[in-house]
Design a protein around this nucleic acid. Structure first.
Lengths: 93, 93
DNA sequence: TCTATATTTCGTCCAACAACGAAATGAATA
DNA sequence: TATTCATTTCGTTGTTGGACGAAATATAGA
């Protein structure tokens, strides 16, 4: 999903239908592993693919990952939801 | 380990120190997923990397896997054990 | 300051998985 | 044929991990 565009926690919960606490946990793990980084944006925290991973294996993994799952129906569906999602409609009320 | 050379169940148990039933289970899963194949050899069953995977993602994965873990101390150690292991000494008594 | 919204932290619960031993199966050989 | 060794199957157990809700924290704006 983050390969489509940077996302905040609430946008991800909206696509995956998981609790915010669950999504936050997963993002924390991905961040500590070096796959993603976060950027504070006021009330929100944007998460995005780490543009400059310290470990070249991370870049390699992300490229391969895309190749492995890009054709999965569920992945296509989730990516589509990401592209259509608008934080201002989904998150704030 | 199978990227080093084909192995039978008892050689793998000897390196990993796991029960034969455990190793057999794992190999079954890898076989059903298309990563490895088996070749009967009398009393033994040799397992080896699938030389002609139906799904190109499998070849891709195996190549990447090697890149990701080749430098891990545990992997190096296990590969060394594999290279030194001799079925006739380890398995039969 | 008070409120609303986003996020994180924490503790708990449940499901999935890894590993095991015992018993069954298969194959070579005494 | 009986025995031995390799392997597989099956049922059980303990551990890990995922998901959750509640409570705490952070930020923007009324």
């Amino acid at each position: 999903m983050l390969q489509t565009k940077p996302l905040c926690v609430c946008e991800i919960t909206n696509v995956l239908r998981l609790a915010a606490s669950t999504v936050s946990q997963h993002l924390k793990i991905l961040k500590e592993a070096g796959f993603i980084i976060e950027e504070k944006d006021g009330k929100w925290v944007n998460y995005l693919i780490n543009p400059r991973p310290g470990d070249p294996r991370i870049s390699s993994f992300l490229t391969s990952l895309d190749f492995w799952i890009a054709e999965e129906a569920l992945i296509i569906s989730d990516k589509k939801k990401v592209m259509e999602s608008d934080r201002n409609i989904i998150c704030a009320k």
